[in-house]
Simulated assay, not measured.
Amino acid sequence: MEKIDFKKTLKALYAPAAKDFALVEVPRMQFVKVDGHGNPNAAPAYKAALEWLYGVSYALKFAAKALGKDYGVPPLEGLWWAEDNAAFTAGAKDQWNWTMMIMAPEFVTPAMFEAAVAKTGKKLGEPPASLRLEPFDEGLSVQILHIGSYDDEAPTIRRLHHEFIPQNGLVENGVHHEIYLSDPRKTEPARLKTILRHPVRRQ
């Protein structure tokens, strides 16, 4: 059975080589998602969200494998925003809103998702109210590969918003998006790889 590797089949989206800003066209995909609010380093809801996302995603992987379709679980992703954008750029994490998510292949059905939630619930209990399988159509986006600590992203994010986007005749068209290519439990902060992405549209 051939195992699908999304870092190869969707290389531009999940394994970019360049560290410079690049425009990408992100296709419509589906994700397992959980919403929340607050500092991800302290909010219990954030820890629970990740437990459920990984639990359901691996249950989906095993269910798909039983049907003859094997794949590597894609990386964790996060959408981030704040009611006052200054709170986001200033790092006021207690004021952040987030949607954490993991991509589910197109052959994953709602029935498979419901079964995966039930299976995960035997271990984790009651699922978060916002847990869902949902399509996400990001479209035209600008992204860059950041290597280093999450707390060191701010200068790159400022360049993205105040230099690259306006200088290229673009406007923001959504919220800040991060894709976590490294496991922070096993990788020192200076070597973490994170894709920073923002959807845009042409003026």
Score class of each variant (00 low, 15 high):
Y150I: 14
D70I: 10
I157E: 04
W80Y: 04
H177I: 13
K61G: 08
E134R: 00
P127D: 09
E178W: 00
L76F: 13
A115V: 15
T120E: 11
F113C: 12
K186D: 07
M103L: 06
P166C: 13
R202H: 06
N168E: 01
A118T: 15
E126W: 03
V24R: 01
G148M: 04
H146E: 05
G55M: 09
E25R: 01
R158L: 10
A118G: 15
S130M: 00
H198A: 02
N173V: 09
L196Q: 06
Y58R: 10
K33W: 00
K7P: 10
T194D: 05
V142D: 06
R191S: 09
A15Y: 00
S130K: 01
I147W: 02
I144S: 02
Y14K: 05
W96Q: 05
K3L: 14
D137A: 15
T120P: 07
V32N: 09
E51Y: 08
N39M: 03
T109L: 14
F6D: 10
A18W: 09
V171S: 10
A59F: 01
K7C: 05
P184T: 04
P110R: 08
V200K: 02
T9E: 06
F107T: 14
D20I: 00
P166G: 09
E106D: 15
I147M: 06
L10S: 02
F113E: 05
F136Q: 10
A18V: 01
V56K: 02
A63E: 12
N85H: 13
H162D: 12
P110A: 13
T194M: 04
V24D: 01
T156I: 06
T9D: 01
V171E: 14
P44F: 11
L79R: 00
R28Q: 12
Q143H: 08
L170Y: 08
L145M: 06
T9P: 00
E134V: 11
P127M: 12
G148C: 07
R201D: 13
Y71C: 14
H37P: 06
T187P: 07
E126N: 03
P166N: 12
K19H: 10
F31V: 15
